[in-house]
Amino acid sequence: MSFESEIQVKDVDIDIPVFDGERSLKKTLFSVATGAGRIEKNRRASIVRALRDINFSAQRGDRIGLIGPNGAGKTTLLRLLTGAYLPTRGDVRIFGRISSLLAVGVGMDPDDSGYDNILTCAMLMGLTRKEAEGVRDSVIEFADLGDFIYMPFRTYSMGMMLRLSFAVATAIEPDILLIDEVIAVGDAAFSAKASARIEGLVSQSSIMVIASHSDAIIRQFCNRVIFLENGRILFDGDLEPGLEAYTKWTQGQFVPEA
């Protein structure tokens, strides 16, 4: 096919206002946890500068690992690419169908069976009812939950919820697959299966972006690393140099390129 999936992120900032909570306390806590100067206070709200000057592009075959400390902006970046958060400044262009797995069980009702939730979730991801019914069998087969598929979603373990959510997110054949930390809760068998499915998708035409704190997961799934810290990109490049940069940063030895 002539179509090429692509992501272009240009000069993106995201500010997030926080309206509740005790502000001075929050400010103190945040400045310890995520670096000072990232929360600006005005009369009405604290404003978290979640992302700053984000520029990158991705082409087919890119499997990007988002790394960085807690609160670096990884999830915010994934929400931006999903289209859930719109930027405060800047511009994102995405060529290709997006599917995201940012949390386990999004769009699934705890009281509904897995079987029925597949339909709802696939429709939320953009399929028509007919199409959703069409992918249901393959989702059930991949999730491999046995008779639990007819039980209410709330009875599932975290791993089972992940299996089902992942199965739906990938069954719709996305061009661009966005995954947050969640994938870490799967067992070894699932991990191998997920890995194979992602390989399959990426070899077709897709781009994958995955955020994780696990070097093992990043090594397993990715061929490129974007290292975020304090809302900015500190490193964008090959896998091993990226992981090395992050390790150096944690040891306080990281020197950003000029």
């Binding site: 179509f3 999936s5 931006l80 289209g83 719109l86 930027p87 405060t88 400044r89 800047g90 511009d91 994102v92 262009r93 995405i94 060529f95 290709g96 169908r97 997006i98 991801m125 953009g126 399929l127 028509t128 199409e131 069409g134 719709i172 054949e173 996305p174 061009d175």
Partner: peptide, 16 residues
């Protein structure tokens, strides 16, 4: 791709 409403393959997410 073949299915879904996002099969229109271009999305622009901007600050507007």
């Amino acid at each position: 791709m073949s299915i879904g409403r996002h099969s229109r393959t271009y999305t622009r997410i901007s600050a507007s």
